[in-house]
């Protein structure tokens, strides 16, 4: 059992009820990762729009720090992030904040679409922003670079590919195992209940002590969700290969595939 204060800093997801009361208390900053035009049509009250494309245009620590400060986020501010894309985009932003050293960031445990279907309050007003200062303390232990992967694997790290099954079969990093992002969420929540996630990991013989590196197709969104899924069930040593398979291919690194099978033709689309 961990104590309450630890629980607080290790909060991975925030549920809708908690978020609503924290918004009322004004004790929190909420980031909406959807496109600007979607945000303008309605968003969670007080949420600040931070489209993923803005982050991806330049995700260097300095630029991210600038954004953080312009949103009025200080070192101790609680931040909750949401999107409407299974929590994958929100995960990428949350991970980036953690990488520059912001500890208290969590994911809303449902998508914006689910929030609306529940009939919860939305707003079209933009909150006013006051610039604050935030320190920069990089957390390299949660980042994996291309050259890190194979040596780490040699030493027993588990490589997890969070893309869909058909993409994985077509090609993947040698030795990776596939946990498609669709496996991570439930009908209601962006992440399954912990007991279920634990079972999925145990079924794969991965222990909580293992080092795990997640990756996906291109920018670390789906694998960002994979990262938080693993963190949520107590795996401590998880890293995100944020440049993912797109970079891996462009570097002409070795690739593995399931050959001699026409699995794509099973698709009804």
């Amino acid at each position: 059992m961990c104590c309450l204060s630890k629980e607080k800093t290790a909060r991975i997801t925030t549920d809708a009820d908690t978020l609503r009361s924290e918004i009322r208390d004004k004790s929190i900053k909420v980031l909406d990762i959807r496109k600007e035009e979607d945000y303008k049509q309605g968003h969670i009250p007080e949420a600040i729009n931070f489209p993923l494309s803005n982050l991806l245009a330049d995700d260097s620590p300095d630029k991210v720090l600038q954004y953080t400060q312009s949103f009025g986020i200080e070192d101790e501010t609680s931040v909750v992030v949401y999107d409407d894309t299974f929590g994958a985009l929100a995960s990428r932003v949350a991970w980036t904040l953690q990488y520059i050293g912001h500890e208290d960031v969590s994911l809303l445990d449902i998508t914006y679409g689910a929030w609306r279907r529940l009939g919860l309050e939305t707003s079209i007003e933009m909150p006013s922003l006051n610039k604050k200062t935030h320190s920069l303390k990089l957390q390299p232990q949660i980042l994996a670079a291309a050259d890190y992967l194979m040596p780490a694997k040699e030493k027993g790290a588990v490589l997890v590919d969070n893309r869909e099954r058909l993409n994985f079969l077509e090609h993947h990093i040698p030795g990776a195992i596939n946990i498609p992002y669709r496996m991570l969420g439930s009908h209601q929540n962006i992440l399954r209940p912990k007991e279920e996630l634990k079972r999925l990991i145990q079924n794969r013989n991965i222990s909580t002590g293992s080092e795990v590196i997640t990756y996906c197709g291109s920018v670390g969104t789906l694998s960002g969700l994979g990262y938080y899924a693993l963190k949520s069930i107590g795996l401590d040593n998880v890293k995100l290969y944020v440049r993912s398979f797109k970079e891996w291919k462009s570097l002409d690194k070795p690739i593995e595939k399931q050959s001699d099978a026409n699995y794509w033709d099973l698709s009804a689309e």
């Binding site: 009820d17 919860l120 209601q188």
Partner: peptide, 8 residues
């Protein structure tokens, strides 16, 4: 876990 749930 959210206490409110999606009803169908």
């Amino acid at each position: 876990m959210s206490k409110t749930s999606l009803s169908q």
